[in-house]
Design a protein around this nucleic acid. Structure first.
Length: 299
DNA sequence: CCTATTTGACCACC
DNA sequence: GGTGGTCAAATAGG
């Protein structure tokens, strides 16, 4: 797709711009150790993201799904209307590799529109679920990955990545936009933490619950009272759907997992919630609150 | 006119 | 047979 290039360019610009903004904020927050750490993380993430985009040279299509081969078959290259009907099948266990439960609260900041292009290709009422499940996929790269969104509640939705989630490095993919349905007040997609953070956060169970899926995916639940900075989301057009080769992805995931989430919406959210430093600062619910406030104050 | 969303139906897996 | 995932025609919106 030609759009990929533009998309990349925007992303790089956005990341750099963000880095610049963070730097400026850092200057203003030098007195605060917490702010310092957080901002530094953000800055690094932004620049890393930019570098990755540039380095990847816009070869998103390269990505191949290591996670589930069948996925490739499921989505014939012929496109959406392709007649290759090899598919329509859910081969065996087309497992959703990473699962992310996102809970944004009462529709707090409505920055649900992460700027990514999610295409909804289906909706289904799920047995036992109070809300229908929506199925989304990236508009830009259908083959590589899909996201399944599940709404189990008005304030919760899950993003499950099928195959290898290839959007990383802060570029993390976004959670699908909230369904338009009224009963569905979609909260802003929230970033999740890595498994390690899951442990750290376990102490915060009262407020946060973390479930780790077998495949390394994880599910976090954030209290509806939870709110994240709407912030920087001024730059929404940054599409972070970068697709790196799977091997790349794995490594990155290993190295950056503390900062990366498979389903982040904006890099902003990612850097904020995915940032280990921000989480490292957390020592308890109280601190969480203060930290959130702190972060909010930053933006 | 093009693109995205909706929605019913189809199909495979359990 | 039930259920979940996907397809694709119809529809809406820009």
């Amino acid at each position: 797709m030609a759009g990929a290039c533009v998309f990349e360019e925007k992303t790089v610009i956005h990341e750099l711009t963000q880095g610049l903004q963070m730097t400026q904020q850092l200057r203003l927050n030098l007195h605060s150790p917490e702010a310092r750490n957080l901002l530094i993380q953000k800055i690094l993430s932004s620049y890393e993201n930019a570098l990755f985009v540039l380095q990847s040279g816009g070869q998103p299509s390269e990505v191949e799904i290591t996670g589930s081969e069948e996925f490739a078959f499921d989505r014939p290259l012929s496109g959406q209307h392709g007649q290759n009907v090899i598919s329509k099948k859910r081969k065996g266990s087309a497992t959703w590799e990473d699962e992310v439960r996102i809970c944004g609260g009462n529709g707090l900041e409505d920055n649900t529109d992460d700027g990514y292009s999610w295409r909804k290709y289906g909706q289904k009422d799920i047995l036992g679920a109070n809300f229908p499940r929506s199925y989304y996929e990236f508009s830009y790269h259908k083959e590589p990955k899909q996201v399944k969104k599940t709404d189990n509640g008005p304030t919760i939705f899950e993003s499950a990545y099928k195959g290898k989630h290839t959007c990383n490095l802060g570029a993390q993919s976004a959670s699908p936009p909230p369904p338009p349905s009224p009963e569905y007040h979609e909260p802003t997609p929230v970033r999740l933490s890595s498994p390690n953070h899951g442990e750290m956060l376990s102490n915060l169970k009262a407020n946060l619950s973390v479930n780790t899926s077998d495949l390394g995916g994880y599910t976090d639940t954030i209290p509806s009272s939870f709110s994240f900075p709407s912030t920087s989301s001024g730059l929404k057009e940054d599409h972070h759907q970068f697709h790196f080769p799977s091997y790349y992805d794995d490594e990155l995931w290993q190295v950056c997992s503390p900062f990366i989430s498979p389903a982040t919406s904006e890099s902003n959210l990612f850097t904020e919630w995915g940032s280990s430093s921000s989480l490292d600062l957390l020592t308890g619910p109280t601190d969480v609150d203060s930290d959130f406030e702190f972060m909010n104050s930053l933006f």
